[in-house]
Design a protein around this nucleic acid. Structure first.
Length: 860
RNA sequence: GCGAAAGUGGCGGAAUUGGCAGACGCGCCAGACUUAGGAUCUGGUACCGAAAGGUGUGGGGGUUCGAGUCCCCCCUUUCGCACCA
């Protein structure tokens, strides 16, 4: 294949994308220009895109993701950074196993074939990856380190096993983490998840809940707000207090969590969740026990989140148990109700209907008393002196709960205090008297990582009847997946059916023992993969800590926002753990995050734009685009068509426009190549340029300045627009290569070389070809090629066209020098013929002069 | 229901952050070259108006010499959340 193109050494007259792209892809492979060297003294830049799942085919979303990353990688390389730009495969997971179940293929062979095909696609797109660092999660030299990390967590008590109610996807026959079943739907197939009691492995991400929130301030300048917001909501940090309500005629206490301890005098009941453990204890011997049990069972069975039908009606039952309000001494009934969740807080709440919407609704339904204990205060009062207790009318008919802060009434000695004062003082009072304390709770739950699947990293644990559970010794890693599992898709791990895998010896007593048959969630693999790129062949450690110091944190991470609370929160957690075991010296793995928008296409015959997908039949095959238009044009269009964070609506005519542009540039360079590649160039200082030549140079330097600053913010669409503008100006320059004077040739060379270099991040093959055509050998990444630097002197306009407004309406323009004084500008504006006509007979009230910008004459 | 973001030509989108609205491209119209055009090149293209001129950034109000940009109300769309005590 390569031989076919060997004869093409120089630029062809016509633009043939396929030839150029093949030529340069081969050249890059041979020279290894994209391989990052650790000992390179230049400043590093780690450019990372989310690694793909090897489904078999690249889709346009990938093309967009990698085009953005590749543009940045090229930009940084051309600026002289030592760029690390790797890629790999998130190759464990469901589809390989589904293929095994349905078609009997070997999941490893299936995966490797897919990787080979997709690697070819990425190479045909000309993505500038360092292929020497490629990794794949399903290979033992990778998942060995998943297991190593698991053991490290086990040692530190961060991995543990417990029976718990877990999210179960009935379609996929496996457990899902909370993050993967957000909204009650399976993240992968959208099936409604069920709850099951199973013994499962968990990672104690909750130990890091506070850091996951607090450390956001280290990254918030360069992560999208919406991602941080979602993570913050997911962690669900909430400040409040625990309060113990003693149970009457018992030594038991019911602990509640509240954020509004200031409303405690308004409590009319304690409400327990149906799963609350005290429920059975407190009702021993009660006449109501049967009714309560039946009610609790009913609630549990109905507790499947249901988005479509909205909220469930609140239902509850009085248990007959009584509790004592520790602040007021009041006796309160204890209820059980469906709206109190065991997973949050303590699974018990104090019901304060006057000041909580849910409690209000509940009290209305069951005719419970409603007592107002917070009175509204004006904004000024909130920040000023406490107001004296107003005589709150306890019997006042409330139509809604009042949930704002205010001033306490009907609250004994606390009456008259402002909410925010009372919240602190009452928590301190509770602590002093031993019935509570200020507390912070989190919504996030520990990360359930057990999966009843084959195609994942086996959990490296052994069970021995004598010794109990034992970790697999480090030197025995990896625990390899067996070759001969049967894929039934029945909910038990296929590993359990492989005796050679299950049966082993106990590392402690050397007696017979059994291996754990659960595998790990694939999000474990992706939590730390980008550290493995630093040192992909290390067989003594996941990576060398010196490599981590050299390359990480990631400078720019690019991917879809669908992972805002899955991958991106797990990887932050994992990094903090790696820090705690001394592997990395920082808290956050990613300095700057870009979440790119989806690629959508019209659904045939409708006006709807939806994400490209096989099932909707609106997918576009990248290979077809490359064949029809070339990789360069495909990439250029994808980056030009919309800002990177927006949805991108696919358009075939748009991509044709990209080809047209590339062809025009190519033809222009072709026309000039002979003149420009001649030796004996003149320097700009040698000559007095024509006004047109100076204008072209000005445009060149303005464009350099614009694109350079656009790149820092990844405003790639406007960068492409600026390249097109520069090209248009070169085209208008209209000099004849054969006869143009030396100074014009200089201006053209400067413009075209800047254009070619700045095009490289978008369309690297054609840029390389044109660079060579302009007489440079050795490729763009040789030392001669550098990202151009804008000269502010040359970029500055020689004259300004200043708009003149009269009463805010544009009426005229005047030409002025860039350093024109305000006074001169004012004078020439007032002297303007059209302005004079308008102000005739009117009074000039004032004249606003914005230096270098505009003049506005205000008349009456 | 709660929360957040966003509404600019036929379309994707620009607008140095309060200073010439519509850059750049797509599409469309006209012309040139062509046996031909779904190729290429040239010109035009926010709206109303014959023109002068006027009107325009979802609607309404406000601040300002000046508002796409800031403030208030409303409408619409998109996204996120799902009883979080």
């Amino acid at each position: 294949m390569a031989d076919v193109y060997d004869w093409i050494t120089f630029m062809d007259e016509k633009y043939f994308p396929e030839q150029i792209e093949n030529k340069w892809q081969q050249r890059w492979r041979e020279t290894g220009v994209f391989e990052a060297k650790t000992d390179d003294p230049r400043e590093k830049f780690y450019c990372l895109e989310m690694l793909p799942y090897p489904s078999g085919f690249l889709h346009m979303g990938h093309v967009r993701n990698y085009s953005i990353g590749d543009a940045l990688a090229w930009f940084k390389r051309l600026q002289g950074f030592n760029v690390l730009h790797p890629i790999g495969w998130d190759s464990f997971g469901q589809p390989a196993e589904q293929a095994a179940i349905k078609r009997g293929v070997n999941p490893r062979d299936w995966t490797e074939e897919n990787i080979a095909h997709m690697r070819g696609q990425l190479q045909r797109l000309g993505m500038s990856y360092d292929w020497s660092r490629e990794i794949a999660a399903h290979r033992p030299d990778y998942y060995k380190w998943d297991q190593w990390f698991f053991l490290k967590m086990l040692e530190r008590g961060l991995a543990y096993k417990k029976v718990s109610q877990v999210n179960w996807c009935p379609k996929e026959q496996t457990v899902l983490s909370n993050e993967q079943s957000s909204g009650g739907l399976c993240w992968r197939c959208g099936t409604r998840v069920e709850k099951r009691d199973l013994e499962q492995w968990f990672l104690r991400i909750t130990d890091y809940a506070e850091q996951l929130v607090a450390d956001m301030k280290q990254i918030d300048a360069r992560w999208p707000d919406k991602v941080l917001k979602r993570q913050s909501d997911w962690v669900g940090r909430s400040e409040g207090a625990f309060i113990d309500f003693a149970v009457k005629d018992s030594n038991k206490k019911i602990r509640v969590f509240t954020t509004r301890i200031d409303t405690i005098f308004g409590a009319n009941a304690i409400v327990l969740s149906a799963e609350h453990p005290l429920l059975t204890e407190l009702l021993q011997g009660s006449a109501l026990k049967q009714d309560v049990d039946a009610f609790a069972e009913k609630v549990k069975s109905e507790r499947t989140p249901d988005r479509e039908t909205g909220e469930e009606e609140k239902e509850g039952l009085n248990t007959g148990v009584l509790a004592i309000n520790p602040f007021s001494g009041e006796i309160l009934p204890v209820w059980v109700a469906n709206y109190v969740l065991m997973e949050y807080g303590t699974g018990a709440v104090m019901s304060v209907p006057a000041h909580d919407e849910r409690d209000f609704e509940f009290a209305q339904k069951y005719s419970l008393p409603i007592r107002q204990v917070i009175a509204p205060v004006s904004h000024e009062q909130m920040n000023a002196e406490p107001v004296p207790t107003t005589a709150g009318d306890a019997s006042a008919e409330m139509k809604h709960s009042f949930t704002d802060y205010g001033v306490l009434i009907n609250s004994g000695e606390w009456g008259g205090k402002l909410s925010k004062v009372a919240i602190a003082e009452m928590a301190a009072h509770a602590k002093k008297n031993g019935f509570g304390e200020a507390a912070v709770t989190y919504r996030i739950r520990d990360w359930g990582v057990s999966r009843q699947r084959f195609w994942g990293a086996p959990v490296p644990v052994i069970y021995c009847d004598k010794c109990g559970m034992a970790p697999v010794p480090y030197e025995q890693l990896p625990v390899m997946l067996p070759e001969n599992a049967a894929f039934t898709g029945t909910g038990e791990s296929p590993l359990a059916g492989v005796p050679e895998f299950v049966n082993t010896t106990c590392p402690q007593c050397h007696g017979p023992a059994r291996r754990e048959t659960d595998t790990m969630d694939t999000f474990v693999d992706s939590s730390w993969y980008f550290f493995r790129y630093l040192d992909p062949h290390n067989d003594a450690a996941p990576f060398d800590t010196r490599m981590a110091k050299q390359w990480t944190p990631v400078d720019q991470y690019i991917g879809g926002d669908s992972h805002a609370v899955m991958h991106l929160i797990y990887t932050r957690f994992w990094t903090k753990f790696m820090r705690d075991i001394g592997l990395v010296p920082f808290d956050e793995p990613v300095k700057s995050l870009l979440t790119q928008g989806m690629v959508t296409n019209r659904i045939e015959g409708t006006d709807e734009w939806k994400a490209m997908s096989k099932s909707l039949g609106n997918g576009v095959d990248p290979d077809e685009m490359i064949a029809a238009f070339g990789a360069d044009a495909t990439r250029l269009f994808v980056l030009f068509a919309a800002p990177v964070e927006n949805e991108l609506r696919w358009s075939e005519s748009g991509i044709e426009g990209a080809v047209r542009f590339l062809r025009r540039v190519y033809t222009m360079v072709w026309r000039w190549r002979e003149r420009l590649s001649q030796p004996g160039q003149i320097e700009p200082s040698d000559v007095e340029s024509s006004p047109e030549g100076r204008a072209l140079r000005r445009k060149t330097h303005q464009t350099i300045a614009k694109i350079t600053s656009d790149f820092e913010q990844l405003h790639l669409n406007t960068s492409v627009a600026a390249l097109m503008e520069l090209f248009n100006q070169v085209a208008e320059f209209n000099a004849d290569p054969a006869t143009a004077p030396a100074e014009d040739v200089f201006a053209v060379r400067e413009a075209l070389e800047a254009l070619v270099i700045m095009l490289a991040p978008f369309s690297p093959h054609i840029a390389e070809e044109m660079w060579e055509g302009l007489g440079h050998t050795g490729g763009l990444l040789q030392d001669v090629a550098r990202w151009p630097v804008a000269d502010p002197e040359l970029a500055r306009r020689e004259e300004l066209e200043i708009p003149i407004q009269v009463n805010g309406k544009l009426r005229s323009r005047v030409i002025a020098a860039p350093d024109v004084s305000e006074e001169d500008l004012r004078t020439s504006a007032l002297a303007d013929e059209r302005v004079r006509a308008l102000i005739q007979g009117r009074e000039v009230v004032k004249v606003i002069v914005v230096p270098r910008r505009l003049v506005n004459v205000v008349i009456r």
